[in-house]
């Protein structure tokens, strides 16, 4: 490919695939070189000698006839990732090493769709601050093999992405969960043993703070700390202000606005607008702060913020606390 011999010996499975599709493989590399002056062909060698070689060995063991077309699709994926500078992402590496082998039967039947969906999902998750990508990859590797078709694999990925902290997928993922096989849905939602899936789905739909893995967690409690100082890599240049909407919060910091979406699995910031902020509520409702504790009726919860300038904002299921002394917002589940 790069004109230099590869540094390691390739498996016979990959060598056969390269031999069979020599023209196509070379054309892909030539196109990549054209599109990006200084394209690093050493990265292509690394792709071939690393993930592709391992994949070829496994694929040949499962279905040798379909291995070549799957490897060509995988090569396209690898090249695209190299061109976009994403090939070295840990999540991408985890997909090659663990997730793809688990989904190999499906990848052999529908290579381009399976690989495209998995790696697009990886790139998406990588772009969501706070998403637990390692958890997603581990659970995909563990459950991906139970997916009989692509639709199920896609549904599984969506539910696991939600559970990995992509809170704004909540309503869509809940719908998808109804369409998965019951056992797979139970496992995907990490429901505690003994909880039946119908109950889990009902309770998930009834409020954002039910976690099927910890069904007993209830009451007023701090569930997330969101934010951080931009000087340390966080989103806020100064402590933000907050307003409540029906389905989340809007934050204002200097002249920028964010929309905060949160549930039991995570909290994600999106771009917001001044209009949303103006439409939000700054009411604290029945919440009070006394002696370092937030109080709601008889319920109490410790809060590590000073009383001075503390802003409490109450939404339908969640409260937010922010302080002029902190770049982080504390989110509290109300029930």
């Amino acid at each position: 490919m790069s004109g230099q011999p590869l540094s390691t010996t390739l498996s016979s499975a990959l060598a056969r695939a390269l031999q069979a599709g020599r023209g196509q493989f070379n054309a892909r590399v030539a196109e990549a070189c054209r599109s990006q002056p200084g394209f690093d062909t050493a990265a292509v060698d690394a792709l071939l000698c690393g993930p592709l070689d391992q994949l070829a060995i496994r694929a040949a063991a499962v279905d040798a006839e379909r291995a070549n077309s799957m490897l060509l699709a995988a090569f396209d994926v690898g090249l695209t990732l190299i061109l976009r500078g994403k090939a070295e992402l840990p999540l991408v590496q985890a997909l090659w090493a663990n997730v793809l082998p688990a989904c190999l039967p499906l990848a052999l039947r529908q290579p381009r769709d399976t690989l495209g969906n998995l790696f697009n999902a990886a790139l998406y998750l990588q772009s969501v601050a706070g998403a637990r990508t390692v958890q997603w990859a581990q659970e995909m590797a563990s459950l991906g093999g139970h997916c009989a078709n692509l639709a199920t694999l896609r549904g599984l990925g969506q539910i696991l992405a939600w559970r990995a902290g992509v809170a704004h997928f909540r309503s869509g993922a809940l719908q998808v969960a109804h369409s998965l096989p019951l056992e797979l849905a139970h496992a995907a939602l990490a429901a505690a043993p003994g909880l039946d899936i119908a109950t889990v789905l009902d309770r998930l739909a009834s409020g954002p703070w039910f976690d099927p893995a910890r069904p007993a967690a209830r009451g007023l409690r701090v569930v997330h700390e969101v934010g951080g100082f931009s000087g340390f890599g966080g989103p806020f240049a100064q402590p933000p202000e907050v307003r409540a909407l029906a389905d989340g919060f809007v934050l204002r910091c200097a002249d920028r606005h964010w929309y905060l979406c949160a549930d039991a699995f995570g909290a994600v910031l999106h771009a917001g607008s001044a209009e949303e902020f103006a439409a939000g509520s700054a009411e604290a409702g029945a919440l009070t702060f006394r002696g370092g504790e937030i109080c709601l009726g008889d319920a109490r919860c410790a809060l590590d913020l000073p009383a001075e300038g503390l802003q409490l904002v109450c939404g339908p299921n969640t409260a937010a606390a922010c302080s002029p002394h902190s770049h982080f917002i504390r989110l509290l589940a109300l029930a």
């Binding site: 396209d76 994926v77 695209t80 976009r84 381009r112 769709d113 690989l115 495209g116 969906n117 790696f119 697009n120 999902a121 790139l123 998406y124 998750l125 896609r154 990925g157 969506q158 992405a161 939600w162 992509v166 704004h168 997928f169 309503s171 869509g172 993922a173 719908q175 998808v176 389905d247 989340g248 929309y259 979406c261 999106h270 771009a271 917001g272 607008s273 001044a274 209009e275 949303e276």
Partner: peptide, 20 residues
């Protein structure tokens, strides 16, 4: 800026540079 009610699509997970 978003002017309408927010709607997040779970299918966005699979929108990316790779062809499917």
């Amino acid at each position: 800026p978003v002017a309408r009610a927010r709607q997040f699509d779970v299918a966005d997970l699979y929108n990316g540079p790779l062809q499917t």
